[in-house]
Design a protein around this nucleic acid. Structure first.
Length: 320
DNA sequence: ATCCAGGAGTCCG
DNA sequence: CGGACTCATGGA
């Protein structure tokens, strides 16, 4: 019931008002690329029932974002025939908001990437062949918010993922911004400005250890003060330069840097090779008696044709 | 109970 | 520079 349309709606985009400049939209559409499966993306997004920065339902996903300092709650669903439908739930929006939302969706689900070369490449490699067959159409699902991506990686260091989601849920519900719609609450990850002002005890109470508290508050201050920004990282010409900049952040080591290069900054050749979850996934996919060594993985991944980040996402997916 | 978990910083030689 | 130690708690 949550995902049903409330009222009959005209074909998209639904506009009101007489003048083009004042048109308001309730819905819009996004074209999807080849090699795309909305259900595979939903499955990935639904990994944890403790995730609060989006809400997955059987046929759709809802997310709260902010555009021009305005909260925008939208719903994404499959339309078939190569389109996704975006419904603006909390208000009608002008084109000046519709465009950035479409842009956000494109980035979130990595819709601008042509996966045909990857899928052709994968046919020649038994591991990649089985991953792309089993999870056809899965995209590199991003965490577009740099602060959220870095915090999520830091939270995930050296603890099991289930507990990491518990910690993330607590941070979001204690310090994030929320919006209530139809008696459900939707959340945004807290801003650096908010976290930068916290006392260590605020996070220790949520069962963070002292290291993570120090890392996350320090990171929040760096970002609040403009010393670290997504734009600056994206302006760096190469993966190596962005990686160096990330490694300068206290609490960000090789794994976290690669993870964020992949999940937030969209570098398709980034690969968090130290990731225990990926080691387990590789062991299972390759039927190995033990986890592969770093050197074995380095050798394998060197042959993944610049699609390492996609391989990582498909490997994570294989664990669900 | 015991071991592991989608690591990173520090210290030591 | 490479290796050992510490952090610190939930899940299985």
């Amino acid at each position: 019931m949550i995902c049903q349309n409330e009222a009959p709606l005209k074909s998209h985009p639904v506009a009101t008002g007489r003048h083009p400049s004042s048109r308001l939209f309730r819905k819009t559409t996004v074209a999807v690329p080849r090699e795309f499966s909305f259900q595979e993306c939903l499955k990935f997004l639904a990994r944890s029932d403790k995730e609060r920065t989006h809400a997955v339902h059987p046929e759709c996903v809802r997310k709260l974002i902010k555009i021009d300092d305005e909260p925008i709650l939208f719903e994404l669903r499959n339309m078939r025939h190569g389109f996704l439908e975006i419904t603006f739930l909390n208000r009608l929006v002008p084109a000046s908001i519709r465009s950035p939302v479409i842009e956000f969706v494109n980035e979130w689900l990595d819709l601008d990437t042509n996966l045909s070369p990857f899928y052709r490449f994968a046919r020649k490699n038994s591991l990649l062949k089985q991953l792309t067959t089993n999870h056809y159409g899965l995209r590199l699902i991003k965490i577009p918010d740099l602060f959220e991506a870095l915090c999520w990686a830091i939270l995930g260091q050296q603890i099991n993922v289930a507990f990491a989601y518990t910690l993330k849920q607590r941070v979001v519900e204690n310090f994030g911004e929320s919006f209530v719609f139809e008696s459900a609450t939707y959340w945004r990850f807290p801003t650096p400005e908010t976290i930068a002002e916290l006392q260590p005890a605020d996070l220790l109470n949520l069962q963070f250890n002292r290291q993570k508290v120090e890392y996350i508050i320090g990171l929040a201050r760096l970002m609040r003060d403009g010393n670290v920004s997504k734009q600056r990282l994206l302006e760096m010409s190469t993966l190596e330069n962005a990686r160096e900049a990330l490694l300068n952040i206290r609490g960000v080591g090789p794994w976290t840097a690669s993870y964020v290069l992949m999940r937030c900054l969209g570098f398709r050749s980034a690969f968090p090779i130290e990731d225990i979850g990926l080691h387990n996934a590789l062991q299972r996919q390759l039927n190995l008696p033990r986890k592969p060594s770093l050197e074995e993985i380095r050798n394998m991944s060197a042959g993944w044709g610049g699609w390492q980040a996609y391989v990582a996402i498909y490997l994570y997916r294989s664990l669900l």
